[in-house]
Design a protein around this nucleic acid. Structure first.
Length: 797
DNA sequence: GAATGGCCCGGCTGC
DNA sequence: CGGGCCATTC
């Protein structure tokens, strides 16, 4: 259960056993040898099982924490699991556990083994945006016509290859289009390598390649490192992730996975349900446990969920049940428009809040982000506090990315896309022409753009004005790089804002928009500060690289704050969460199940069905499901009939309702029953377009002031940054071990030291030899014996 | 070299 | 409907 801390059990519901676990749960937590798969139905307490299993491994089996790896689906889930474990086992043991997402875990392992992966130490992680920027440079250089070969298709293809663990060298083109893909693929790879950067897929593939390399010493270390590997949400792993955990657990054979094939909703990004279904086949002798009792929801909700999932084909046989009382029926609400829908939602939320329900116990789900806008507008006008998860994400905002790019250039000057991003922001009179000349020279010299700056200034290829501008930029960045050696991440960020003139540029603008951007930057500084605090609290050294890594890997759900606000998110983002009151909007054919315009990407109705199941099972006590007669989709009015999934809801647990608007307009497109309605024929057309309701108006007076005063943009609804308890423990990057400095005298037990590969550690003992060796306990690693001269002393005892 | 306005095209879910 | 790209203009 990933609910917020301290959630009280709903009135009338049986809480999960307070102490100990029920039969199957206990079995899953206790049998600690060999492979094991747990089929855990929604709300059956799987997080609890994993948590207790780890506690058991630590306390009863005395497994060293740094030899346990637990892979979670989000950073937030990792943080919550750690917090729960701390309460059971105490912070000492928990600190050294490896708990994190696939990506965060791989990033951390890759810091240690960057050499085996052919990466520089301070490699950075490129997000989608960066990947696109790189690829558009590739297209330019290879002179590929974006019309004939749309970039997103090329990138999509490469992405799919990489999800199967394949790189450019493994790709054999079979047709002219693939020919183009192949060329882009290798050029893209080359550019990332030159930039000392990896993308999300690389993060996993690089580690996988090391793990699967029989001859590599690093591979051997990784294969031996973990005595226990546990994976949550196993139904959503892809082939690369599966091979990874197989490799990491091959020696120990202690691979423990928990999943629910009914909740597999990420096939579109490479997840493969067959992996969990075939687990037994792939692991002969694997123990199987099924958790089928739902502790979370009322029986009405469970019954509704079962109705939706039962028609699904090809499921692992299992039967979810609950002892909980029926509670309130599920309300299915017919609405006229999306605005009508939003108004009804807001009204109900208002009632709940007035009755004393915390807004934090309420969530609004939708299939696609685009649906959130109207809901936001109405909730804002009702002064209901809310937070939108995902959508235009904080770290994707231009100003935030700008500052992050500055910081990345400073840690890793080889990153061309970052330099290009900020080369003329704020305006320095370095335009396209100059940039192209710089790129040309860099290509000739075979150096990164940054290193071509000085040569270009010395050359006579550019005029005196650009020369001056380029020289100034070079001096500015060099200064900041020097400053990075001593200043902490937060101070450095502040200096960047100040010395680059970025802050001044925004202040000078004086618009509300600029004001908002400044506010976001301040928030970014706040997040760096928080990172510093958390890292120090964990007795580690905050580094810019550590922060940047964290930034790159925040997941949407990590953004959910513990705040008394209604949470609004896509159903995908809702996975793993639970709320006492849930509003599920947009349950119409073509919307949910979603149907893409592009027949090539026509969705998978089975997956949509599972998605609906996930949505329903998030609700503990009350669930409302909405469908609207018509809805504005991409600027055009679309008429939708109720989703087929509504017809699968058992009638006995459902009440049907209509909004006020629907009642007054006699629900003209919905038959009396509410479902099985026909899509209105075009011939019925004319009157419905002229039909007008004050709320149905588009364009008049209800527009949201998009760039309006930032304060009103942020409250009561706000988009914000993550608060993540799982700070990565990256080694210091800009401080090489002081090889020629004599070992500090008096370095005794208890001293805090830092090592470039292993990160922070505590000295247990030091021998008295002329070139002393220290025994050091590193967080996340076993105790190591290391020459003192390779250690940097952080705190001397 | 920068700023502005028009136009086209995509149009989901996300680490 | 909205973002990104291009052409035009200062």
């Amino acid at each position: 259960m990933l609910s917020r801390d301290g959630d009280p059990p709903e009135a009338g519901l049986t809480p999960a056993p307070a102490e100990g676990l029920n039969g199957p749960q206990a079995e899953a937590a206790a049998h600690v040898d060999g492979p094991m798969v747990v089929f855990a139905g929604a709300g059956s307490g799987k997080t609890r099982v994993i948590t207790y299993r780890i506690a058991n491994l630590l306390a009863a089996c005395r497994v060293p924490p740094y030899r346990i790896l637990a892979v979670t689906f989000t950073n937030k889930a990792a943080g919550e699991m750690k917090r729960r474990l701390e309460r059971i086992c105490g912070p000492e043991l928990v600190r050294d556990l490896w708990v994190g997402t696939f990506h965060a875990t791989c990033a951390r392992l890759l810091r240690r083994h960057h050499e085996a992966a052919g990466l520089g130490k301070n490699f950075i992680v490129y997000d989608d945006d960066d990947q696109r920027a790189v690829m558009s440079r590739v297209f330019k250089e290879l002179k590929i016509d974006d019309k004939r070969h749309p970039m997103r298709l090329v990138m999509g293809r490469i992405h799919r290859e990489k999800q199967d663990g394949l790189l450019a060298a493994d790709f054999t083109p079979g047709n002219p289009t693939e020919e183009v893909v192949a060329r882009c693929f290798s050029e893209y790879e080359r550019r990332l390598a030159d930039a000392n950067a990896v993308d999300f897929d690389d993060l996993l593939i690089r580690v996988l390649r090391i793990v699967e390399d029989e001859r590599s010493a690093a591979g051997e270390e990784l294969r031996k490192k973990f005595l226990h590997v546990l994976v949550d949400e196993f139904q959503d792993v892809n082939q690369v992730q599966y091979r990874l955990v197989r490799g990491l657990s091959r020696r120990s054979t202690n691979l423990f996975v928990v999943g629910d094939d009914d909740q597999s909703i990420y096939r579109w990004r490479g997840a493969d349900v067959r992996i969990v279904r075939n687990f037994r086949r792939d692991h002969p002798g694997a123990r199987i446990v099924k958790l089928e009792e739902n502790y979370r929801s009322t029986s009405s909700v469970v019954t509704a969920a079962l109705g939706v999932i039962r028609p699904a084909t090809d499921r692992e046989p299992k039967e979810l049940w609950t002892n909980n009382p029926p509670g309130e029926p599920v309300a299915v609400v017919a609405c006229a428009t999306e605005r009508d829908e939003a108004a009804f939602v807001a009204e109900r939320v208002r009632e709940l809040v007035d009755q004393g329900v915390s807004p934090a116990d309420v969530a609004i789900f939708y299939r696609v982000h685009a649906q959130s806008r109207v809901l936001e507008e109405v909730l804002r006008s009702e002064r209901l506090p809310f937070q939108v998860i995902g959508g235009v994400r904080f770290f994707e905002r231009a100003e935030v990315k700008d500052l992050v790019s500055y910081l990345r250039v400073i840690t890793n000057p080889r990153s061309d896309v970052d330099l290009l991003r900020i080369i003329n922001v704020p305006s320095r009179k370095i335009g396209d022409t100059t940039v192209e000349k710089l790129a040309g020279l860099a290509a000739e010299l075979k150096v990164p753009l940054f290193e071509a700056l000085e040569p270009l200034v010395r050359s006579d290829r550019v005029g005196p004005q650009p020369k001056k501008a380029l020289a100034r930029l070079h001096a500015l960045l060099s200064d900041l790089m020097t400053a990075a050696d001593t200043a902490g991440p937060r101070d450095l960020a502040e200096r960047v804002l100040d010395e680059t003139g970025y802050a001044r540029m925004l202040e000078a603008e004086g618009t509300d928009e600029a004001e908002g951007r400044l506010l976001n930057l301040r928030e970014l500084l706040g997040s760096i500060e928080e990172y510093e605090r958390e890292t120090l609290a964990a007795a580690e050294v905050p580094t810019l690289a550590g922060y940047l890594e964290k930034v790159a890997l925040v997941a949407v759900t990590d953004e959910l704050k513990d705040a008394p606000k209604v949470a609004m998110m896509t159903v995908h983002a809702a996975k793993g969460l639970e709320f006492s009151h849930v509003f599920l909007t947009g349950m119409e054919e073509d919307m949910f199940p979603f149907r893409s315009m592009d027949p090539a990407r026509s969705g998978d109705v089975e997956e949509e069905r599972r998605l609906a199941y996930v949505a329903i099972t998030r609700a503990r006590a009350r669930l409302w499901i909405f469908h609207a007669e018509r809805r504005m989709v991409f600027g055009a009015t679309k008429y939708g009939m109720p989703s087929r999934f509504l017809a699968d809801l058992p009638k006995e647990v459902v009440t049907q309702q209509k909004t006020e608007t629907m009642r007054s307009s006699q629900g003209r497109f919905i038959d009396r029953d509410g479902w099985g309605a026909k899509r209105p024929e075009a011939s019925q057309g004319a009157p419905r377009l002229s039909w007008s309701h004050p709320q149905a108006r588009t364009g008049g007076g209800l527009e949201r002031p998009r760039l309006a005063a930032p304060s009103s943009e942020r409250t009561p609804g706000e988009r914000f940054i993550e608060r993540d308890d799982d700070a990565p423990r990256a080694a210091s990057l800009r401080r090489p071990a002081p090889v020629d400095v004599p070992a500090p005298r008096g370095l005794g037990p208890g001293s805090q030291v830092e090592h470039p590969s292993f990160g922070m550690g505590v000295v247990l003992e030091v021998d008295g030899s002329p070139d002393p060796t220290a025994t050091v306990k590193f967080s996340g690693w076993s105790t190591k014996r290391i020459k003192v001269r390779f250690l940097e002393v952080v705190h001397q005892r």
